[in-house]
């Protein structure tokens, strides 16, 4: 059922604008990650540079979301679901901004890789890209739709991504003895995989905040590894 609209229309608009800005940040980030991927696989420096330049816009939006969130708290004193949604939006924007920094990290490493000989079997990282991008898209879809069920899927998918990262690092490392000239490039690829793994963590964080905003269930730091 659609929630009732707020009596104070300016409050309703402020909440809507906040949400739109977070979704805009997300779209820009997803475009940047795709550009970083193209830069890496097409060995095209221009795509990499685009990612680095576009990061400024995402940074500005993060500040804008903070300002809007503060203003909503100051002017309207939100409570209950409104308060949770404002806090969730502000936390989500921080996570998107950090994810965008990882995309910049990928672009910088891809740019370095453009300058060296192509790395054998570099396409092995492609499934990690697809997995990460799908995770992030779903985390943001769940945020936009207020869908805790979709958010719940992020945690196991993040574990899968961790496993993919480990496997990738192992497989690339195993190639190093036979390709000593490519070791530097291979290390850059391992760092790229590490950036993707980190983006997966951030997507999971967004999903956790969505679950809290919608169902007031705090699932952070649950199922942690038992102490040895």
């Amino acid at each position: 059922m659609e929630p009732k609209r707020h009596i104070l229309t300016s409050f309703e608009s402020a909440l809507e604008n906040l949400r739109k800005d977070v979704l805009m940040m997300s779209s820009l980030f997803q475009r940047s990650l795709e550009n970083a991927r193209k830069g890496l696989f097409d060995r095209d420096e221009d795509w990499c540079n685009t990612v680095i330049v576009d990061d400024e816009e995402i940074d500005s939006l993060e500040i804008q979301v903070d300002t809007e969130g503060m203003e909503i708290m100051l002017r309207y004193h939100p409570v209950a679901s409104d308060l949770r949604n404002v806090i969730s939006a502000m936390k989500t924007s921080v996570n998107i901004e950090r994810a965008a920094d990882q995309a910049v990290g990928i672009a910088r490493r891809a740019r370095k890789l453009c300058a060296v000989q192509a790395i054998p079997d570099s396409s092995r990282i492609q499934p990690m890209f697809q997995h990460t991008m799908a995770m992030f898209a779903d985390a943001m879809k769940a945020y936009a739709d207020g869908d805790p069920a979709l958010s719940e899927t992020l945690k196991p998918r993040d574990k899968e991504l961790d496993e993919m990262n480990r496997n990738f690092a192992e497989s690339i490392t195993s190639l190093m003895p036979t390709n000593p000239d490519s070791i530097r490039g291979m290390l850059e690829l391992i760092f790229v995989a590490r950036c993707l793994e980190r983006i997966g963590d951030l997507a999971k964080n967004i999903a956790e905040d969505t679950i809290y905003a919608v169902s007031v269930k705090d699932i952070r730091h649950t199922n942690q590894a038992q102490p040895r």
């Binding site: 929630p3 009732k4 609209r5 707020h6 009596i7 104070l8 409050f11 939100p78 409570v79 209950a80 679901s81 409104d82």
Partner: peptide, 10 residues
């Protein structure tokens, strides 16, 4: 309660 305290009342 949610509708009242968040101003979605009436």
């Amino acid at each position: 309660t949610e509708d009242y305290i968040t101003g979605r009342f009436g």
